[in-house]
Amino acid sequence: MHMPLSDTLGLNLLAANQHQAEHNREHFEAWNLLCLNVMSSPGAGKTSLLERTITALAPQLEMAVLEGDMTTQLDAQRLEAVGVPVVPITTGRACHLDAAMVSGGLRQLQARLNPADLDLLWVENVGNLVCPAEFEVGEHLKVALLSVTEGEDKPLKYPVMFREADCVLITKVDLLPYLSIDVSRIEAHIHAVNPEAVVFQLSASSGAGLDAWHQWLLATTRERSCRAELAEVG
């Protein structure tokens, strides 16, 4: 006769991933860099935006990219071409990056440079609006992109992503004249599921709206490194 026993765990289902994510974040803190996890559906414009943004901010910030791609290295090559160190993380079957994959990418990055010299580390996630929202990789902030061609209802259909995002970028606004889309409704839907989200409308093609986004990035990066210095002093 075996006594039936029961243990209360109260453990997060994703605890194993979260432990690794915490570990990655400790490295980011030690290197005093800001890590942004960039997420969207396939083709919303993550790589195009990074090409523009990295080019624009290169004089002010040292940056590198961890590039999640299911099978190809195409995005990594595009970003290498703008002159930034890129570590491709080929995810194969996985439809999202997890903290262990990013940890592997960090080791490769360390073989090429000293991460303490970086101000900003970009993680371009796999194009997918669903699960990347649940798998932390150790990032400080989540950035979600939504292109205007995807429709006004997407923040309501994929609410977890837009709820979890700290910053939402409405992309490809250069296409608005050709669409019957009310961009203010997209923005209203984002704020309905996430009133605290910082939202920018921009276009990587025309350059519209990029300045405000870049100013926000500079301010966020600086604010972080100031806080880190203060913590060191006091």
């Binding site: 075996h2 039936p4 026993l5 243990d7 765990l9 109260g10 453990l11 997060n12």
Partner: peptide, 12 residues
């Protein structure tokens, strides 16, 4: 919630 609440088991 994404939580492992508890485990039922025995120790034979």
């Amino acid at each position: 919630e994404l939580r492992i609440r508890s485990v039922d088991y025995s120790l034979p």
